[in-house]
Amino acid sequence: MREKQKMTVGKQRAAGDYIKIKMILFGTLAAGVILTAVFAPYLVPYDPYEQDLGNALLPPGGAHLLGTDRYGRDMLSRVIMGSRTTVFAALLLVAVITVIGSAAGILCGYHGGKLDAFLMRVSDIFLAFPGMVFAIAVASVMSGGILNAVIALACISWPKYARIARSQVLSIRNMPYMAAAKLSGSGTFKMICRHVVPNIAGPVIVTAVLDIGTMMMEIAGLSFLGLGAAPPTAEWGSMMSNGRSMLQTSPWVILAPGTAIFLTVVIFNLVGDTVRDLLDPRQKGR
């Protein structure tokens, strides 16, 4: 019996180490992507917006590692510069919806009553629409631009966070430590900051990190449809859309940003998975 328990503990520790190694590995990769985005202007070998029609559609190799597009712009520079738009927009979007959604959820869960009923019905309405279709509608009403795409996606994505935060708040609201904190004279603001937020942060953060990849895809999707980044902005989705008709004749034009989206989304999803393993042991292995 004791032997068995020991083994399980050993296993758990090994699993814990494994998760930590994964976290370090994927965290480094994600940090690499973010650093690339931050320092993009210093990393690019050419000006990503400089047109040189004499060197249009050069295949990869030589002076242009990933080739050039139809305007003769260096693809590698554009992909690196594009990471800025795509990654920053995704991070900004996730930050916005996490904060707004959670705030709404906490308010609802903590206060209850009419405010809760009202906000939750509003979120029901948003959840009733098919997400991407609604985002396309919102983005086209507001006309293009990456910021408008972020706003459109924020409009449809916040209810998820409100729901999660609210259900978490409800589950801790009647805990003894909450009652104790209240008895010791904490005001609403202090209660939320000191006792509610730290105790519901786990699931919200896990959802947020897992969402980075998804949001990246959706921003790129809107840009692909011409509703996100406007030309000549280097953005992976719009770069793919512009290269669409050259898929058969000059495939590098579409493969470079496509691969970039794929790798980045995979990296952020793996980070998200690992963060979940770390913060939310109950979910492990699901």
Partner: peptide, 15 residues
């Protein structure tokens, strides 16, 4: 955008 050449002309002129 319905004439495929026009967005290209615009981007070229921009540069």
């Amino acid at each position: 955008p319905s004439r495929q050449e026009l967005p290209l002309l615009a981007e070229s002129a921009q540069a």
